[in-house]
Design a protein around this nucleic acid. Sequence first.
DNA 1: GATTATGATAAGAATCATTCTTATTTACAA
DNA 2: TTGTAAATAAGAATGATTCTTATCATAATC
Lengths: 152, 152
Amino acid sequence: MRIDREIVEKRMNDFFEACHKRNVKVTHQRTEIYRELASSENHPDAKMIYSRLKKRIPAIALDTVYRNLKFLEKYGLITVVGLNQDSQRFDANIRKHHHFVCVKCGRISDFYSASLDDIVVPEEASRFGKPLSINVEVKGICGVCGKKHKKE
Amino acid sequence: MRIDREIVEKRMNDFFEACHKRNVKVTHQRTEIYRELASSENHPDAKMIYSRLKKRIPAIALDTVYRNLKFLEKYGLITVVGLNQDSQRFDANIRKHHHFVCVKCGRISDFYSASLDDIVVPEEASRFGKPLSINVEVKGICGVCGKKHKKE
DNA sequence: GATTATGATAAGAATCATTCTTATTTACAA
DNA sequence: TTGTAAATAAGAATGATTCTTATCATAATC
């Protein structure tokens, strides 16, 4: 489950460029953490990246992996899959709906939309298995956080 | 941020019905945990539900809240918002794409779809704030887990 | 209405993911 | 080459979630 060498190299170039542009240090660990993720197709978590890297860099600390993943996310080089919350959030609304999630405060709002309810699972997705549900997640800055930001 | 009384009552009826149909006990704690979530609009986490209930049921244990939320999810009365993972998963693919997530094994697969890329944020969503991204999450049973299930 | 079996709860310990603290090391600019 | 701010390693700390076990309550049966 590895990404094509060319794509990885392009990603590595983007990484170096982003580091230089931002004046952040290109450490061995940081480089290899990004390389590991950029070469993986299966959306690993921090532990998985850590244990793979441990073979090549035995002294690496798990905290370094976490720190750099946060760093890479902040600089837009990687994303966290899903909603990026620190705890599970629950919903008693069983009716088909979608979510607006504020990336600042984590507020989650339900919304209904006939047009979005109409979208069908494309073949590109059903190729991976039997679909059970399809939902749309909109990420953005909520009204409250938007106002806060203007004041600052 | 409370749900209309009528809706809550309908949900409570569904809850009692589901409990009886499944022959599970209708305990005070279970009932109030569901009532609390069914009355909330803001997708609380377990801690939040716990602290609200603590006022009414001082002896309630946090574990009971977790246990019953899992229970309610299993019986389809509530859902976990997002991908319901136990750890954060990362993605170096910054090209616009969508996800197929297996609800059995947690495997996450990227897919591309011109038709899904074309969907726009509806007014019902942008009402909550400034949208930054829109993505589709398909949940289902992946090929591997589907085969396993057939064998059993 | 009382009895009882079984599932549910409370309490606290345990586990797992993630972050913090601090002393040490390293990248890289001068 | 050297100075210095940034990054790292190690391990402790935190916070979410789950487990263990003794006790309790629901609901079926008498």
